[in-house]
Amino acid sequence: MQKSSTASRRLLKEYKQLLTDTPDGISAGPIDENNMFEWECIIQGPDGTPYEGGVFPAILKFPSDYPLNPPTMKFTTPLFHPNVYQDGTVCISILHPPGDDPHMYETAAERWSPIQSVEKILLSVMSMLSEPNPESGANIDACKMFRDDLPGFKAVVRTNIRQSLGL
């Protein structure tokens, strides 16, 4: 499919806005400024969570009809989390349009629509790190551990963080 000019125009505007006003703990932008459809973002683990001190890079891939449809987001270092698949793909409601989601949650959680933005996704990911949702799990092992063995869960997360930081 041809990359739409509406999509790249919108992504450029969002990038500029993020450059001037970046939320704490987040940085994001296109990997190559000639291709607005693939971004890298870096998320710092929020303080007071098992992810504190961690730095998590991820790739955002935008569809050619963005923002009609949402991007996908995939962490590129191991992130043990109930709402992140083992391959790093993030599974939260804002990345799915209504009625369009494998877990069919009936919650009033925010879904994708063209009024959303990269910034809103990244903020949702920050709150996902602070408050995992084991009810709509992507990583079943992480869900079980988070529910039944929180100290063990935290230990796995901490080990992953130390490894990814090369410690």
Binding site: L68, N69, P97, P98, G99, D100, A108, E110, R111, W112, S113, P114, I115
Partner: peptide, 17 residues
Amino acid sequence: GESIDSYCARNIEAFSV
């Protein structure tokens, strides 16, 4: 009972609904 914001987000603002 659904809120206006939720109704609009799910039924109107989202493309292809």
